[in-house]
Design a protein around this nucleic acid. Structure first.
Lengths: 349, 349
DNA sequence: ACATCAAATGTGACCGTTCACATTCCAAGG
DNA sequence: CCTTGGAATGTGAACGGTCACATTTGATGT
């Protein structure tokens, strides 16, 4: 492995530096530095000469040396919640692409436990690696609290901040949840239950809140049955509990995967979706259109979210006007998992 | 944003360095360095004094400075194919966790296009950031070819290499594909078609190859109908084409998402799965158990793959014996999407 | 009491850049 | 022809660590 080059001996293993280039080009090291940094006051002939020397020597500027003196690392850190959730992953990818285009590289750290120590250690590592900014894709309330306590001294953006309006960037979860709930109510459902995501997540709270608001606005009683995780497994377990009960004709699920598990549990019990019970999800993962039945859900544009995060962060790093584009709006996608309730039990009587 | 500390003025904004600590502790800077690096020949009292000074000054060693002189960056690079595929993402997360435990941080670069230029530029960026090693999670033949041509001078591991046996780490795709196919054949299916993933992926080739081998071993004709991508969408489209045809009773799908799309297309056309056609997937994504019907598939342990990648790479970075743990074995998970064929059409006459 | 030697600590150079400032070049103006 | 001043280039000192080597310290054997 790692086979080094040729057969000739006694080649100094040291990589060429700007002084080597300078010597080869017959200029001073500072001139080489200027070429690297695109200084305007440079005779074109000199620039060419230097560029050629760089080419010949296969010169690569040493980033560590530059970082040492300028304390610019061209690195940004990303803190991501460690689950395999679709949303954060998709956003992260967009963050990286955007960073890349701006000449930054992204150091990623997954935080398993939302305990203070592990977050702190992740941040420490980021700081030690001199990240210039931070993107935090860990929408757990606990995480965000810790982060606020820690009072980070470098620019950062979090997706979904709790209290502070600064640093924030998010999808309007509440509006999404309300429109999902409204969709069910408009279809004529009256007993709509909500199966939220795990406790401690910002989205869980926002979506539950949106559900509650819409239900009470229509004069109906909100009913919440917890799932425990964002997974299909936990949706299935929640469905198992739910299918014993009567008295509901629709479920608004915390996300698409939970919805998948719910549908599984319902269908297994002989219930028809959407005949007996309507289900609506959240996220619109790429598979949702092919669930059986194809899932009605709320689409979030995760990549766009990631891009905007980076836009905000980059603007700040460059000292530009702090861009603050509005929230990304989620949109309801109606498919086949929702329909009007079969009977209208509570009517009349 | 980024509010700096107190109200007192005239505080030098420079972070404390090793000499500041030395002065505060009444020792030489070299002694401080020794404390940082855990040098054994140090009086305990001195060490304590230094540690305390570091604490008081909130000293953080400057990694760029250290990197400059030692050329150790404690960074490894990850090159990932840019799709939102479940497998690479899951492995990547494991890679990061493992790296983290070893005190490394991971720079990730997603490569959108498998063209030489974009791969080269990603590698350049990694090299410029002085990564000590590279993990390549981009199982596209094209990517791997380019990488082999480029003859990287730093240690690296790729998941699924083509030719060279070095640097390799993978799941035995071929065995997995064979066992999936065998499962269908053992159920009594004779006309099994394969819907592979997109061309150009190492897995696509290996799985198709495994399918072919098993089919011919049993004396049956392999039939391959392309999907185009790893997505449910493209599986659905393939299913649309497929459901016109007759003469098959089972499908071995390139992955779980394609399988989901296939099932969607079949069920939509009034076919029963597994009554009329059995479907088996590949990957065992966490949702597969809750597809309708729950999907028979081949489980790959992506996190384990990631961990092993890092184990191999770290061993090499440390100059240890090159660990080479065997391939990760995939395992068939039988669920409800496969059953014996309803009739046995080709039998007798 | 003193030589001995390893353990403990100190000294100065160096890694490859950029920064602040000094110097040289060269065309235009008097 | 000489000044003038901006453009082009050069000089030496940081930056914050580690390395190689020098020096001091303190316990040990005689």
């Amino acid at each position: 492995m790692t086979v080094e080059g040729g057969a000739n001996s006694a080649r100094p293993p040291r990589a060429p530096n700007i002084r080597d280039v300078a010597r080869a080009a017959g200029v001073s090291h500072q001139t080489v530095s200027r070429v690297i940094n695109g200084h305007p006051a440079l005779r074109d002939s000199t620039r060419q000469r230097v560029l050629q020397a760089m080419e010949e020597l296969r010169f690569r500027p040493n980033r560590a040396a530059r970082a040492l003196v300028t304390s610019e690392s061209r690195t940004i850190g990303a803190l991501v919640s460690s689950g395999a959730e679709y949303g954060p992953s998709a956003s992260l990818r967009a963050v990286e692409t955007a960073a890349d285009e701006a000449g930054y590289v992204v150091d990623t750290a997954h935080i398993d436990h939302a305990d203070r120590a592990s977050i702190e250690s992740a941040l420490d590592r980021m700081v030690a690696h001199a990240v210039e900014g931070l993107v935090i894709l860990a929408p757990q309330s606990r995480t965000l609290e810790v982060i606020e306590q820690l009072s980070i001294r470098i620019p950062f953006v979090t997706v979904h901040s709790l209290h502070s309006e600064d640093h924030r960037m998010s999808v309007d979860q509440l509006a999404g949840a309300r429109s999902a709930t409204r969709h069910l109510l408009e279809l004529g459902h009256q007993r709509v239950v909500h199966v939220p995501g795990p406790e401690g997540w910002v989205e869980t709270d926002a979506r539950r809140q949106g559900y509650r608001e819409e239900m009470t606005a229509w004069g109906f009683e909100p009913v919440v049955v917890s799932a425990g995780a964002w997974t299909a497994d936990s949706g299935y377990r929640a469905g198992l509990g739910l299918r014993g009960r009567r008295g509901f004709s629709a479920v608004f699920s915390g996300n698409d995967h939970i919805a998948l598990g719910l549908v599984h549990a319902f269908v297994e019990a002989g219930l028809d979706v959407p005949g007996d019970v309507s289900v609506v999800g959240f996220d619109d993962v790429p598979e949702a259109a092919h669930f059986l039945p194809p899932l009605t859900t709320v689409r979030q544009d995760f990549p766009e979210l990631g891009r905007r995060c980076m836009a905000v962060l980059l603007a700040e790093l460059r000292g530009e006007q702090p861009v603050r584009p509005g929230d990304v709006e989620p949109v309801l996608v109606v498919r086949d998992s929702t329909a009007a309730p079969r009977a209208t039990p509570d009517q009349g009587r």
